[in-house]
Design a protein around this nucleic acid. Structure first.
Lengths: 158, 158
DNA sequence: CTGCATCCGAAAAGATACTG
DNA sequence: CAGTATCTTTTCGGATGCAG
Protein backbone atom coordinates (compact mmCIF):
# COMPACT_ATOMS: atom_id res chain seq x y z
CA UNK A 1 0.00 0.00 0.00
CA UNK A 2 2.97 2.18 0.21
CA UNK A 3 5.03 1.00 -2.64
CA UNK A 4 5.25 2.99 -5.77
CA UNK A 5 2.37 2.08 -7.98
CA UNK A 6 4.09 0.86 -11.07
CA UNK A 7 2.67 1.38 -14.45
CA UNK A 8 1.71 4.96 -13.90
CA UNK A 9 3.38 7.33 -16.24
CA UNK A 10 3.60 9.57 -13.18
CA UNK A 11 2.70 12.58 -15.21
CA UNK A 12 0.75 14.15 -12.41
CA UNK A 13 0.39 13.14 -8.84
CA UNK A 14 -3.19 12.58 -8.00
CA UNK A 15 -4.28 13.91 -4.68
CA UNK A 16 -6.08 10.65 -4.20
CA UNK A 17 -2.97 8.57 -4.31
CA UNK A 18 -0.25 10.49 -2.57
CA UNK A 19 2.94 8.81 -1.50
CA UNK A 20 2.68 10.27 1.99
CA UNK A 21 1.56 7.86 4.65
CA UNK A 22 1.75 8.64 8.35
CA UNK A 23 1.58 4.98 9.16
CA UNK A 24 4.95 4.48 7.59
CA UNK A 25 7.74 5.06 10.01
CA UNK A 26 10.00 7.03 7.74
CA UNK A 27 7.46 9.25 6.04
CA UNK A 28 8.10 12.97 6.58
CA UNK A 29 4.41 13.47 7.15
CA UNK A 30 4.73 11.75 10.47
CA UNK A 31 7.14 14.39 11.66
CA UNK A 32 4.85 17.20 10.64
CA UNK A 33 1.89 15.46 12.19
CA UNK A 34 3.82 15.29 15.41
CA UNK A 35 4.57 18.98 15.34
CA UNK A 36 0.91 19.66 14.79
CA UNK A 37 -0.46 17.22 17.31
CA UNK A 38 2.37 17.47 19.76
CA UNK A 39 1.91 18.56 23.30
CA UNK A 40 2.15 22.26 22.47
CA UNK A 41 1.79 22.45 18.74
CA UNK A 42 -1.92 21.89 18.76
CA UNK A 43 -2.57 24.43 21.47
CA UNK A 44 -0.43 27.04 19.79
CA UNK A 45 -2.14 26.58 16.46
CA UNK A 46 -5.46 26.74 18.22
CA UNK A 47 -4.54 29.96 19.99
CA UNK A 48 -3.24 31.49 16.82
CA UNK A 49 -6.48 30.74 15.08
CA UNK A 50 -8.01 33.65 16.95
CA UNK A 51 -5.71 36.17 15.36
CA UNK A 52 -2.23 37.62 15.48
CA UNK A 53 -0.25 37.55 18.69
CA UNK A 54 3.07 38.54 20.10
CA UNK A 55 5.38 36.14 21.82
CA UNK A 56 4.37 36.88 25.37
CA UNK A 57 0.73 37.19 24.52
CA UNK A 58 0.88 33.70 23.19
CA UNK A 59 2.71 32.59 26.27
CA UNK A 60 -0.15 33.83 28.38
CA UNK A 61 -2.81 32.28 26.21
CA UNK A 62 -1.30 28.85 26.23
CA UNK A 63 -1.32 28.16 29.91
CA UNK A 64 1.71 26.28 31.13
CA UNK A 65 4.03 26.56 28.17
CA UNK A 66 7.58 27.61 28.92
CA UNK A 67 9.53 30.13 26.88
CA UNK A 68 11.71 27.42 25.58
CA UNK A 69 8.93 25.18 24.42
CA UNK A 70 7.01 28.04 22.91
CA UNK A 71 10.01 29.27 20.99
CA UNK A 72 10.95 25.81 19.89
CA UNK A 73 7.48 24.80 18.80
CA UNK A 74 6.94 28.09 17.04
CA UNK A 75 10.07 27.50 15.02
CA UNK A 76 9.06 24.01 14.04
CA UNK A 77 5.67 25.29 12.98
CA UNK A 78 7.20 28.15 11.09
CA UNK A 79 9.53 25.81 9.30
CA UNK A 80 6.62 23.64 8.27
CA UNK A 81 4.98 26.70 6.77
CA UNK A 82 2.10 26.73 9.21
CA UNK A 83 2.99 29.89 11.07
CA UNK A 84 4.19 33.22 9.76
CA UNK A 85 6.61 35.22 11.86
CA UNK A 86 6.92 38.95 11.35
CA UNK A 87 9.60 40.83 13.25
CA UNK A 88 9.62 44.59 13.33
CA UNK A 89 12.96 46.24 14.00
CA UNK A 90 11.44 48.72 16.38
CA UNK A 91 12.35 49.48 19.89
CA UNK A 92 11.29 47.69 21.93
CA UNK A 93 11.26 44.76 19.54
CA UNK A 94 7.92 43.55 18.40
CA UNK A 95 7.29 40.21 16.78
CA UNK A 96 3.95 39.02 15.55
CA UNK A 97 2.90 35.48 14.87
CA UNK A 98 -0.02 34.48 12.74
CA UNK A 99 -1.22 31.47 10.84
CA UNK A 100 -0.52 31.00 7.17
CA UNK A 101 -3.43 29.85 5.01
CA UNK A 102 -2.15 26.32 5.35
CA UNK A 103 -1.80 26.69 9.08
CA UNK A 104 -5.31 27.98 9.21
CA UNK A 105 -6.62 24.93 7.42
CA UNK A 106 -4.78 22.69 9.83
CA UNK A 107 -5.99 24.65 12.83
CA UNK A 108 -9.52 24.26 11.57
CA UNK A 109 -9.40 20.48 11.72
CA UNK A 110 -7.49 20.59 14.92
CA UNK A 111 -10.12 22.72 16.57
CA UNK A 112 -12.83 20.40 15.36
CA UNK A 113 -11.03 17.65 17.22
CA UNK A 114 -10.42 19.77 20.28
CA UNK A 115 -14.00 20.86 20.48
CA UNK A 116 -15.21 17.34 20.12
CA UNK A 117 -13.02 16.25 22.99
CA UNK A 118 -14.06 19.13 25.20
CA UNK A 119 -17.63 18.48 24.28
CA UNK A 120 -17.53 14.83 25.18
CA UNK A 121 -15.41 15.11 28.28
CA UNK A 122 -18.29 14.11 30.54
CA UNK A 123 -18.34 10.73 28.85
CA UNK A 124 -14.60 10.43 29.15
CA UNK A 125 -14.69 11.23 32.83
CA UNK A 126 -17.40 8.67 33.40
CA UNK A 127 -15.42 6.05 31.55
CA UNK A 128 -12.34 6.83 33.57
CA UNK A 129 -14.18 6.45 36.84
CA UNK A 130 -15.66 3.17 35.84
CA UNK A 131 -12.29 1.94 34.67
CA UNK A 132 -10.62 2.87 37.92
CA UNK A 133 -13.42 1.46 40.01
CA UNK A 134 -13.54 -1.81 38.15
CA UNK A 135 -9.85 -2.24 38.49
CA UNK A 136 -9.80 -1.41 42.15
CA UNK A 137 -12.64 -3.68 43.06
CA UNK A 138 -11.71 -6.72 41.07
CA UNK A 139 -8.10 -7.15 41.81
CA UNK A 140 -6.06 -7.13 44.90
CA UNK A 141 -3.33 -4.70 45.59
CA UNK A 142 -4.42 -1.88 43.43
CA UNK A 143 -1.48 0.38 43.53
CA UNK A 144 -3.48 2.92 41.61
CA UNK A 145 -0.86 4.24 39.19
CA UNK A 146 -1.89 7.83 39.00
CA UNK A 147 -5.59 7.49 39.03
CA UNK A 148 -6.17 10.81 40.64
CA UNK A 149 -4.80 13.07 38.00
CA UNK A 150 -5.52 16.54 39.19
CA UNK A 151 -9.09 16.77 38.21
CA UNK A 152 -9.49 20.40 38.85
CA UNK A 153 -11.60 21.71 36.08
CA UNK A 154 -11.50 25.32 36.79
CA UNK A 155 -12.04 27.08 33.54
CA UNK A 156 -9.28 29.47 34.39
CA UNK A 157 -8.94 30.63 30.85
CA UNK A 158 -9.80 34.18 30.08
CA UNK B 1 -1.30 27.30 42.05
CA UNK B 2 -4.53 26.61 40.43
CA UNK B 3 -7.06 27.31 43.05
CA UNK B 4 -10.05 28.60 41.27
CA UNK B 5 -11.05 31.51 43.43
CA UNK B 6 -13.33 33.18 41.02
CA UNK B 7 -16.34 34.34 42.80
CA UNK B 8 -18.34 31.77 44.60
CA UNK B 9 -21.45 32.96 42.91
CA UNK B 10 -20.34 31.27 39.80
CA UNK B 11 -22.20 32.23 36.72
CA UNK B 12 -24.43 29.69 35.18
CA UNK B 13 -22.72 27.11 33.10
CA UNK B 14 -24.09 27.15 29.62
CA UNK B 15 -23.66 24.22 27.35
CA UNK B 16 -22.02 26.63 25.00
CA UNK B 17 -19.51 27.59 27.60
CA UNK B 18 -18.38 24.26 28.93
CA UNK B 19 -16.04 24.15 31.85
CA UNK B 20 -13.62 22.11 29.85
CA UNK B 21 -10.89 24.11 28.27
CA UNK B 22 -7.77 22.54 26.85
CA UNK B 23 -6.00 25.85 27.16
CA UNK B 24 -6.21 25.63 30.92
CA UNK B 25 -3.34 23.77 32.41
CA UNK B 26 -5.30 21.75 34.92
CA UNK B 27 -8.24 20.81 32.77
CA UNK B 28 -8.62 17.05 32.37
CA UNK B 29 -9.44 17.57 28.73
CA UNK B 30 -5.85 18.40 28.09
CA UNK B 31 -4.77 15.00 29.27
CA UNK B 32 -7.26 13.27 27.03
CA UNK B 33 -6.27 15.40 24.10
CA UNK B 34 -2.70 14.36 24.66
CA UNK B 35 -3.61 10.70 24.67
CA UNK B 36 -5.48 11.19 21.44
CA UNK B 37 -2.91 13.30 19.67
CA UNK B 38 0.10 11.71 21.24
CA UNK B 39 2.79 10.04 19.24
CA UNK B 40 1.01 6.69 19.11
CA UNK B 41 -2.52 7.47 20.19
CA UNK B 42 -3.49 9.00 16.90
CA UNK B 43 -2.03 6.22 14.85
CA UNK B 44 -3.64 3.54 16.96
CA UNK B 45 -7.04 5.19 16.75
CA UNK B 46 -6.52 5.53 13.04
CA UNK B 47 -5.65 1.88 12.67
CA UNK B 48 -8.55 0.80 14.80
CA UNK B 49 -10.90 2.80 12.65
CA UNK B 50 -10.64 0.02 10.09
CA UNK B 51 -12.09 -2.59 12.37
CA UNK B 52 -11.35 -4.91 15.26
CA UNK B 53 -7.85 -6.15 15.88
CA UNK B 54 -5.87 -8.29 18.24
CA UNK B 55 -2.84 -7.06 20.07
CA UNK B 56 -0.21 -8.32 17.69
CA UNK B 57 -2.22 -7.46 14.63
CA UNK B 58 -2.28 -3.89 15.83
CA UNK B 59 1.39 -4.03 16.52
CA UNK B 60 1.99 -4.94 12.91
CA UNK B 61 -0.31 -2.25 11.55
CA UNK B 62 1.24 0.60 13.46
CA UNK B 63 4.73 0.59 12.11
CA UNK B 64 7.36 1.20 14.74
CA UNK B 65 5.39 0.89 17.92
CA UNK B 66 6.87 -1.24 20.66
CA UNK B 67 4.96 -3.69 22.76
CA UNK B 68 5.27 -1.48 25.77
CA UNK B 69 4.02 1.67 24.10
CA UNK B 70 1.18 -0.14 22.42
CA UNK B 71 0.05 -1.65 25.68
CA UNK B 72 0.45 1.60 27.52
CA UNK B 73 -1.35 3.72 24.95
CA UNK B 74 -4.11 1.17 24.59
CA UNK B 75 -4.74 1.37 28.30
CA UNK B 76 -4.88 5.12 28.36
CA UNK B 77 -7.31 5.05 25.47
CA UNK B 78 -9.38 2.36 27.09
CA UNK B 79 -9.54 4.31 30.29
CA UNK B 80 -10.73 7.36 28.41
CA UNK B 81 -13.51 5.27 26.94
CA UNK B 82 -12.24 5.49 23.40
CA UNK B 83 -11.25 1.89 22.95
CA UNK B 84 -13.08 -1.23 24.00
CA UNK B 85 -11.07 -4.22 25.10
CA UNK B 86 -12.61 -7.64 24.97
CA UNK B 87 -10.69 -10.52 26.45
CA UNK B 88 -11.86 -14.04 25.84
CA UNK B 89 -10.84 -16.63 28.42
CA UNK B 90 -9.95 -19.12 25.76
CA UNK B 91 -6.73 -20.90 25.25
CA UNK B 92 -4.62 -19.49 23.89
CA UNK B 93 -5.91 -16.14 25.12
CA UNK B 94 -7.48 -13.88 22.58
CA UNK B 95 -8.05 -10.20 23.09
CA UNK B 96 -9.80 -7.92 20.67
CA UNK B 97 -9.61 -4.17 20.51
CA UNK B 98 -12.12 -1.97 18.80
CA UNK B 99 -13.26 1.61 18.92
CA UNK B 100 -16.20 2.67 21.02
CA UNK B 101 -18.70 5.03 19.38
CA UNK B 102 -16.92 7.90 21.04
CA UNK B 103 -13.56 6.64 19.89
CA UNK B 104 -14.94 6.37 16.41
CA UNK B 105 -16.04 9.99 16.45
CA UNK B 106 -12.62 11.05 17.61
CA UNK B 107 -10.89 8.91 15.01
CA UNK B 108 -13.03 10.54 12.38
CA UNK B 109 -11.76 14.04 13.13
CA UNK B 110 -8.29 12.76 13.62
CA UNK B 111 -8.27 11.16 10.21
CA UNK B 112 -9.54 14.35 8.67
CA UNK B 113 -6.51 16.08 10.12
CA UNK B 114 -4.16 13.33 9.07
CA UNK B 115 -5.42 13.34 5.55
CA UNK B 116 -5.14 17.08 5.33
CA UNK B 117 -1.54 16.91 6.43
CA UNK B 118 -0.71 14.10 4.03
CA UNK B 119 -2.48 15.98 1.33
CA UNK B 120 -0.58 19.19 1.82
CA UNK B 121 2.83 17.72 2.47
CA UNK B 122 4.25 19.11 -0.76
CA UNK B 123 3.65 22.61 0.57
CA UNK B 124 5.20 21.73 3.87
CA UNK B 125 8.27 20.32 2.22
CA UNK B 126 8.65 23.43 0.12
CA UNK B 127 8.33 25.67 3.15
CA UNK B 128 10.93 23.66 4.99
CA UNK B 129 13.40 23.98 2.19
CA UNK B 130 12.92 27.69 1.96
CA UNK B 131 13.25 28.05 5.70
CA UNK B 132 16.49 26.12 5.80
CA UNK B 133 17.91 27.97 2.84
CA UNK B 134 17.06 31.38 4.20
CA UNK B 135 18.53 30.59 7.54
CA UNK B 136 21.70 29.17 6.14
CA UNK B 137 22.43 32.17 4.03
CA UNK B 138 21.58 34.88 6.48
CA UNK B 139 23.15 34.02 9.70
CA UNK B 140 25.65 32.25 11.72
CA UNK B 141 25.68 28.81 13.04
CA UNK B 142 22.03 28.16 12.79
CA UNK B 143 22.20 24.50 13.61
CA UNK B 144 18.60 23.82 12.86
CA UNK B 145 16.76 22.33 15.81
CA UNK B 146 15.89 18.96 14.48
CA UNK B 147 15.92 19.58 10.82
CA UNK B 148 16.86 16.09 9.94
CA UNK B 149 14.71 13.98 12.13
CA UNK B 150 16.62 10.76 12.38
CA UNK B 151 14.82 8.52 10.03
CA UNK B 152 15.67 5.20 11.44
CA UNK B 153 15.90 2.85 8.63
CA UNK B 154 14.59 -0.48 9.48
CA UNK B 155 12.40 -2.97 7.97
CA UNK B 156 10.21 -1.02 5.72
CA UNK B 157 6.56 -1.34 5.34
CA UNK B 158 4.40 -3.73 7.15
C1' DC C 1 -0.62 -15.39 22.94
C1' DT C 2 -1.22 -11.58 25.97
C1' DG C 3 0.76 -8.38 28.65
C1' DC C 4 2.89 -6.64 33.04
C1' DA C 5 7.38 -5.31 35.65
C1' DT C 6 12.03 -3.54 35.71
C1' DC C 7 16.21 -1.57 34.23
C1' DC C 8 18.69 1.74 31.43
C1' DG C 9 19.97 5.07 27.90
C1' DA C 10 18.01 8.86 25.14
C1' DA C 11 15.26 12.58 24.41
C1' DA C 12 11.92 15.95 25.82
C1' DA C 13 10.23 19.23 28.98
C1' DG C 14 11.12 22.67 32.41
C1' DA C 15 13.48 26.32 35.14
C1' DT C 16 16.63 29.92 35.12
C1' DA C 17 20.13 33.17 33.75
C1' DC C 18 21.71 35.94 30.31
C1' DT C 19 21.99 38.64 25.68
C1' DG C 20 20.39 41.79 21.81
C1' DC D 1 10.20 42.49 24.69
C1' DA D 2 12.00 38.55 22.42
C1' DG D 3 14.64 35.16 22.44
C1' DT D 4 18.95 31.92 23.27
C1' DA D 5 22.14 29.05 26.20
C1' DT D 6 22.68 25.96 29.83
C1' DC D 7 21.55 22.89 33.44
C1' DT D 8 18.26 19.75 35.92
C1' DT D 9 14.31 16.93 36.05
C1' DT D 10 10.97 14.02 34.00
C1' DT D 11 9.27 11.16 30.67
C1' DC D 12 9.81 8.22 26.72
C1' DG D 13 10.85 4.16 24.69
C1' DG D 14 13.23 -0.20 23.89
C1' DA D 15 15.23 -4.71 25.53
C1' DT D 16 14.61 -8.32 28.59
C1' DG D 17 12.43 -11.48 31.78
C1' DC D 18 8.49 -13.48 33.65
C1' DA D 19 3.46 -14.82 34.54
C1' DG D 20 -1.34 -16.17 33.33
Amino acid sequence: MDTEPTGGASTTVDAEDLPFDVFARACPSRGTLEHVTGKWGGLILGALHDGTFRFNELRRRVDGVSEKMLSQTLHALERDGLVHREAQPTNPPRVDYRLTPLGSAVAERLLALIHLVEDRMPEVLTAQERYDTTRAGSGGTAAAPDAGRAVVAGRGGR
